[in-house]
Design a protein around this nucleic acid. Structure first.
Lengths: 348, 348
DNA sequence: TTACACAGTTCAATCGTTTGAACCAATGAG
DNA sequence: CTCATTGGTTCAAACGATTGAACTGTGTAA
C-alpha cells in the first residue's frame, strides 16, 4: 500500500532539496550535469510519476485539451477524434473526452466538467440546436479565457473560431455529376434539423437544382442514421414515378437507402442513383461502392488543432471561419438515367 | 483579462472565510442553510468554476478515469468508447482518452501520460503483442495502485481484470449455422496476429471444423481492415475450386470480402456464404446484410466500468476474467451451398 | 451562577510542484 | 586581502481546495 513517490521522496533519497529535484527533472541549466543525472537516476529507480495536478495548480495553466463530440455512433465523427488525438499527442497534450449525445443539456454539463478539469482549450462539434447565445454563455460561465474551436458544424453569428467543410461546394459537385448523367428527377433525404450542415446542404441542393431549372422531387428530414435512410427510402422507391436519383445528407443515410434498394431488387447505379456525403471509410466498400463527397476530416482536424494551439499560445486576432474544400468521389452507386419506358409527357 | 474566481473570491465577496465557502458548496451540514444559500448565490453570480486540480491534490485522489484504445479506425472499437463514456458520466467521472495506434511504444507513452494526469482507474484494449510482463511493468512503473481493466482482448496470464467476449462460443455458433446449411469447404480470413481474439477465433475455427471431420480450405492472416478482406478474398474466389463459405475474423474483413464478391458478380448468400464477427452497426445494412456474431459491447462496457469502479472503491479480491456470451445474428450473407455441378469425387 | 452542549464558523496545516530571491562557496580581478 | 562574479543549490511563498481541530456565542441543564 505504498503511495507514489514525490519530488520529496527523490530529494530525501539523494540528499538534496525538492527545488533541486524539480529543476533537475526539467533540465534547468541552473542545475549541474552531475546532480541532474543523479536525480534522474533516482527518479527512474523509484518509478517516479510526475504529478500534473500539482504542477498545473502552481503554474496556473494546463496542457490538456478537451474534445466534445455531438454523437459517437457516427463513424464519420470518430474520424475527427482520431486525427485530433494524433495532432494533440504530437503537441504533447492530453485529451479530455466528452460526448454530448446530441443533447444541449448534456453538452453544457460536459463543457462544465471539462472546465473544472482545467482544459486549456476546447474543440467541439456543437449539438443540434446550439445557438450563438448558448456558446457565449458557455464561454462566459465555464470557459472564461479558454479558447474554443468548432469543427464540422457552424453556428450562425457565433463569435468563435470554426473550421468547417464547404458543404455548398460538395452539393454542387454532386449535382453537376448527376446532371451530367442525365438525372432530372432528384430527391433529397436530409439529416438532423438544427445543424448548419443539414441546412447548408439542403439549401445548396434546392438552389443548385433551381439553377438548372429543376425542383426537388421530394425532401425528407430525419436523423443521420442508416435506419432513417432505410425507412425513408421505401415510399420514395415504391412511388408510381420514383426519382432517378436520391441525394442523401450523409453516407449513413445513403447506406440505409442502399439497403432499401437491395430488398426491392433495385441496384444502385443501375436502376437508381444514390449519393452519400462524408465519404467515411465504409463508403468505398459498400455494395455497390458509394459515390460520395469526401470531407477532409484530416485537414479539418489538423487546421482546428493548429488554430486552437495558436489561440492557447495567445493569438488574439478576431475569430476566424476556415472552410475546407471537399472532393467528389465517383463510384458505382451512380450511373446514367435508366431508359425505362417513361410515360410520355413525363419530362421536366 | 480577468482570471477565474476562486473560493477566496467568493469568500471575500460575502464576508466569510474560504473554509465556509468550501464546506457550503459541498452542502456540508455544518454550514447553516442561510450561509449555504448566500454562498451558492455568489458562486453563481461570479461564474465560479470548481478547480479539480486543487481538490484532487489536496484529497490525494481523483475522479478521472482513463480509456486507452488500441485502434480508433475500427467502428467496433468506438462502440466501447460510447458505452463507457455513458457509464462513467453517470458515475460522475470524467474520461481521459488515449489512442495507442496498435503500437506498444505509444501504448506505454499514453499510459504514462494518463498516470501523470492522475487517472484513478484505467480501461484498456491492449495493443497487439502486449504481454503479461508489459502489463505488469506498466502497472508498477506508472499505475501503482491504480486499477486496470482490460476489455475485448485478453492477455495470457496477466494478473489483471478483464472482460472479454466468448470468442470460442461465437465461432462455434457460426460453424453450426454454416454446417446446417451444408457447407463443408470453409475458409478462414483472419485478423491481426498477436491478439487473443485473432488466436482464439482461429483456434476455435480449426477445432470446430475438426470435430465435424473437416479441415479448413485455407487460412489467411492480415490486418483487421476492409482492404485486407478485399485483397485476400480475390485469390480465394478466383481459385479453381473455391470455398463455399468464408468465415471472417471481423465485420470489417467481411465487408471487404463482400466488395470483392461484388466486383466478380458473386452474390454473398447465394453464390458463396460470408460471415462477419462483431456485428457492428453497418453489418445490418450491408448488401446483403451480413450474418455475424454480435459482441455485446454494451454489456462488456457496462461490466468493465462496474468492475473498475468497484476496484477504485477498494475491492481487493483477486483479478477476475469475465466473459460475455455473444449472439449469432443470421442475415442474408449466408445461405445453402449452391448446387453447382461440382466435379465428381470432389466431396470432402 | 457555573458548566456544558451544540450549531456555526474560522484556523491552520496540508497536498506536490514551481519559481524568484536568497544564499554560499569558490574563483578571478583589482 | 577585499570585493564582485558566478555556478550551484536552497528558501519560502505561492497555487486553490480540504479538513480536523479550535474557536465563538447562544441556549439549556444542573
Amino acid at each position: 500500500m505504498k503511495s507514489r513517490p514525490t519530488l520529496k521522496t527523490i530529494a530525501e533519497h539523494i540528499g538534496v532539496t525538492v527545488s533541486t529535484v524539480s529543476l533537475a527533472l526539467r533540465d534547468d541549466p541552473r542545475i549541474s550535469r552531475a546532480t541532474r543525472d543523479r536525480v534522474q537516476e533516482a527518479a527512474d529507480a523509484l518509478d517516479y510519476v510526475y504529478n500534473r495536478h500539482a504542477a498545473n495548480l502552481r503554474r496556473g495553466d494546463s496542457a490538456t485539451v478537451a474534445v466534445c463530440l455531438n454523437e459517437l455512433s457516427n463513424p464519420f465523427v470518430t474520424e475527427f477524434l482520431q486525427h485530433m488525438e494524433a495532432h494533440f499527442r504530437e503537441a504533447g497534450r492530453m485529451m479530455l473526452f466528452g460526448h454530448a449525445h446530441e443533447s444541449l443539456a448534456l453538452q453544457a454539463e460536459v463543457v462544465k466538467q471539462m472546465a473544472e478539469h482545467g482544459a486549456a482549450g476546447m474543440i467541439m462539434v456543437p449539438v443540434m440546436g446550439t445557438t450563438a447565445e448558448e456558446l457565449v454563455r458557455l464561454q462566459r460561465s465555464y470557459l472564461r479565457h479558454c479558447p474554443l474551436v468548432l469543427i464540422s458544424r457552424d453556428v450562425d453569428d457565433a463569435p468563435v473560431d470554426r473550421v468547417i467543410n464547404d458543404d455548398g461546394l460538395g452539393v454542387r459537385l454532386l449535382l453537376e455529376h448527376l446532371q451530367a448523367l442525365g438525372h432530372r428527377r432528384i430527391a433529397w433525404l436530409g439529416g438532423g434539423q438544427g445543424t448548419s450542415t443539414a441546412r447548408d446542404r439542403e439549401r445548396s441542393f434546392v438552389e443548385g437544382l433551381a439553377i438548372a431549372g429543376l425542383t426537388p422531387v421530394s425532401i425528407h428530414h430525419g436523423p443521420t442514421s442508416m435506419a432513417f435512410g432505410d425507412a425513408a427510402a421505401g415510399p420514395l422507391l415504391d412511388a408510381p414515378n420514383p426519382p432517378t436519383a436520391i441525394v442523401c445528407f450523409s453516407d449513413l443515410v445513403a447506406l440505409g437507402v442502399q439497403a432499401a434498394c437491395y430488398r426491392r431488387g433495385l441496384v444502385p447505379g443501375v436502376d437508381i442513383s444514390v449519393t452519400g456525403f462524408d465519404d467515411m471509410d465504409v463508403a468505398a466498400y459498400a455494395t455497390p461502392p458509394l459515390t460520395s463527397v469526401r470531407v477532409r476530416t484530416d485537414v479539418i482536424g489538423q487546421q482546428a488543432s493548429a488554430l486552437l494551439l495558436a489561440r492557447m499560445a495567445g493569438d488574439q486576432t478576431p475569430p476566424r471561419c476556415q472552410t475546407v474544400d471537399p472532393l467528389l468521389v465517383v463510384r458505382a452507386s451512380t450511373g446514367p438515367v435508366p431508359d425505362t419506358p417513361s410515360l410520355p409527357g413525363d419530362a421536366l
